[in-house]
Design a binder for these strands. Sequence first.
DNA 1: CCAAAAGTGTTGCTCGTACACCCATGA
DNA 2: TCATGGGTGTACGAGCAACACTTTTGG
Lengths: 220, 220
Amino acid sequence: MGSPWVDIRVVLFTLGDGALCVALNNSDQGVQLPKGVPRPDEALDAAAARVVTEKIGIAERYLEQLYSIAHGDPEDRSVTVAYLGLAISNRSEAPCHGTAWYDVNDLPPLSVLDSRIIEYAQVRLRAKLGYTTIAFHFLPRDFSLTELQGVYETVLGRKIDKRNFRRRMQSGDVLEPTGKSRREGSHRPARLFRFRLSHDSDTYLTPSWAEHSEEETFPS
Amino acid sequence: MGSPWVDIRVVLFTLGDGALCVALNNSDQGVQLPKGVPRPDEALDAAAARVVTEKIGIAERYLEQLYSIAHGDPEDRSVTVAYLGLAISNRSEAPCHGTAWYDVNDLPPLSVLDSRIIEYAQVRLRAKLGYTTIAFHFLPRDFSLTELQGVYETVLGRKIDKRNFRRRMQSGDVLEPTGKSRREGSHRPARLFRFRLSHDSDTYLTPSWAEHSEEETFPS
DNA sequence: CCAAAAGTGTTGCTCGTACACCCATGA
DNA sequence: TCATGGGTGTACGAGCAACACTTTTGG
């Protein structure tokens, strides 16, 4: 029958060495986006999360549906549902065998579809930095303002004024000072902040119903 | 096999009598969103356009992918790709048999999924009014500023200040004066404007590659 | 001359941006 | 005491929101 296969592909970004990196799998058909097929009773978001776990082996912090596209010929038809994911910048946690991080500005040859998906993921990520708090998912629980600014600069690919950035961040009630600070060199220690959870999820303009429906309750 | 069916559902909005309306089909399973199944070699966007033509019978002006979701049980599994569409406010063009316009604030009983899709379509539409020129797709080629303001007010569900609205619209170079005007009552005639095409498509934050590739050129 | 919609400016506030110096620390 | 990154304030301009009256037309 003409029923197409549905596959899930995940563009999982992380930050490493001042570069925006994406996780890619090395398969016998060349380098490609990590992908998988949803199980018969599995929500698409859950399938995407499973792809991250099984194919990348990294704990992701954020996962959002990007776009769906049909491709292939009538005999080998499939519909791909693409996801955008963010993972914490942590070099100690190595991805599984066959998976590696690639600088998005220096990618190996990929299929046309994968390239487009990655490009679009980057567009969406940049746009969302402006009107959401998505950037926090690149950082650990406690972080300095300089680290946060680094996230913005790396993703946007340009320098940001330090004073304006700090004023903007501290003016809303998005940041919570932890009181702690961190010494890490022969200079003044940085004060650490934490992200206020109440500002998550709300502003993302993603459907509120997305797959959470029956089984899951919202994590506090 | 476990390969799911892919179906397309379209939330087609129009404006009528100062209300935001959505096109719904009256089937033997009750009232539901117009839907269809993509052909073996058809792009998803093309399939959505075909749903509009065949199931609604209206010429849509804008069509954008919304979201995909898996549902059903393991034996009767499907993945729905939802679309948001806009059609021109034109009561003379009647939809096909079995299809009717419903005020979004006064909908008949619908499936949980359809209700959620419509609700999300409305959220996206409202949000996009703010940062795109999507509103123009509700109007004919030539229109008055009052008509344009009416579109915003109806979709957003609140009054807007006339002077601020006109200044904002006329300050960019989005509007082109036609020089014509329209008399339609015992009062001053309204000057008519036209939308500058160059401002379309760019700002929508939809993937630039989305299926348009080969066949279509932009309608003038 | 009346009703009805079209059209028009000013003011205050908020927010983004440009810009340069002192502070705390470890070596 | 020096090198290094952490931390701070001000002034200007752009853009948004609030606000009320005059103009043109047909009846």
